[in-house]
Structures are given as structure tokens and as C-alpha cells.
Measured scan of single mutants.
Amino acid sequence: PDEFRDPLMDTLMTDPVRLPSGTIMDRSIILRHLLNSPTDPFNRQTLTESMLEPVPELKEQIQAWMREKQN
């Protein structure tokens, strides 16, 4: 489902985090971005790792969907 895909890389998220802007991304992708630029890739506001907020409900939904697909 589209809501499980990272908006920057269009890959399935495994550890979704919410940026201060409200955008949800995969943690590994935003951390890689932050190594090059300490900004939100969508609005260029300053962004640090400590500002990332886990989204455990979405992570659980993704994991359940993945388990379902394996069966």
C-alpha cells in the first residue's frame, strides 16, 4: 500500500518516523539524508535525528501486512 512506502525513495518502510513537518519517512532513509544535509528534504527546515518521532502504530501495521504477504 502507498501509505507504507517512503515518500522520498518509494520503498517499503520498516521503521517509520514522523518529521516535524508531519511527513512520515523510513528512519534509515532520513538518517542517510541527514548525513549530507541537516534539513527536512521536503521543506528545507532544520532537522536533526532527535526531532524524528517514531510511529509505532504504522510500524505494526507494516509488519502485520508483511506477515500476511508471507503466508
Rank of each mutant, 00 (worst) to 15 (best):
R32D: 13
D26N: 03
Q63C: 06
P16A: 00
M9T: 09
L19I: 00
L31F: 04
D10W: 02
M9V: 08
T23V: 14
D6A: 10
T23D: 10
Q63K: 14
I62Q: 08
F42G: 06
E49D: 15
T48D: 11
T48L: 09
T48S: 13
E49T: 14
L12N: 05
I30M: 02
D40L: 01
R18V: 02
M13I: 13
N71K: 12
N43T: 15
D40A: 01
N43S: 12
D40V: 06
L34K: 07
R5I: 14
R18T: 01
P56D: 04
R5V: 12
S37C: 10
L19S: 03
D2M: 12
V17G: 00
K69R: 13
E53R: 10
Q61W: 00
M25T: 02
M51I: 06
L8Q: 06
T23H: 12
L12M: 10
V17M: 07
N71L: 12
L19N: 04
Q61H: 15
W65E: 07
E3G: 02
D2P: 14
D15M: 00
L34T: 07
I30Q: 03
M25N: 11
D15P: 02
D6I: 02
L52V: 07
M66C: 15
P41M: 00
T48F: 00
E49A: 14
T14M: 12
P16R: 00
R67S: 10
P38W: 02
E3T: 08
H33M: 12
Q61R: 14
F4D: 05
R32V: 08
F42R: 03
T39Y: 15
L31D: 06
I30W: 00
M13S: 03
L35W: 08
E49R: 10
Q45L: 07
M13K: 01
D40T: 01
I24R: 04
R67T: 13
R67V: 13
E53L: 07
Q70H: 12
P54S: 07
N71T: 12
L34R: 02
A64G: 12
P7K: 05
D40W: 00
E57N: 05
T48Q: 15
T39K: 11
R18G: 02
F4M: 10
P1W: 01
P56S: 10
R18C: 06
T11A: 07
N36P: 00
L52E: 02
T14D: 07
F42A: 08
L34P: 06
M51W: 10
P20T: 00
W65N: 07
P7T: 08
R18N: 15
L34W: 06
L19M: 09
A64F: 04
D40R: 03
T39F: 14
R67W: 09
M51R: 07
S28A: 15
N36S: 15
P38M: 04
R5A: 05
P7H: 00
E68R: 09
R67I: 12
S37L: 05
S50H: 13
L8V: 12
F4Y: 14
E49V: 12
D40K: 01
E49P: 10
E3W: 05
I24P: 00
W65S: 05
L47C: 13
N43E: 05
R5C: 03
M13P: 03
S37T: 07
Q61Y: 05
L12D: 08
L8D: 03
P41G: 04
I62T: 07
M25Q: 01
D10L: 05
P56T: 06
M66Y: 05
T11I: 14
D2E: 15
L19E: 03
Q70L: 14
L35A: 15
F4G: 02
W65A: 06
T39W: 09
E57W: 13
D2Y: 06
D15S: 06
D40E: 07
L12R: 04
Q63R: 11
I24W: 00
P56Y: 06
N71R: 12
V17Q: 03
S50D: 12
M51N: 07
T23S: 09
D40Q: 02
I30D: 00
R44Q: 15
I24H: 05
R32N: 12
P56V: 08
V55F: 04
P16C: 03
I30L: 06
N71D: 15
F4N: 02
Q45G: 12
S50G: 14
P16L: 05
L34G: 03
E68C: 07
M51V: 10
E68M: 13
E57I: 01
E68Y: 06
R18W: 12
R5K: 09
E53Q: 14
D15E: 08
P38V: 00
T46W: 15
R44W: 06
M9G: 11
P41H: 02
T48Y: 04
D40S: 00
Q70W: 05
K69C: 13
N43H: 13
Q61V: 10
E60R: 09
R32K: 15
T23F: 13
T14L: 12
P7L: 03
R5Q: 07
Q63A: 11
D6T: 00
S37R: 09
Q63L: 12
L34N: 05
E3L: 07
F42P: 04
D10H: 06
R27V: 02
Q45C: 08
P56M: 09
L34Q: 04
F42C: 07
M66S: 10
N36F: 12
Q45K: 13
T48M: 10
P20W: 01
F4T: 05
Q63P: 04
E53G: 03
M13A: 11
V55P: 03
D2V: 14
N43A: 07
R5M: 12
D6Y: 08
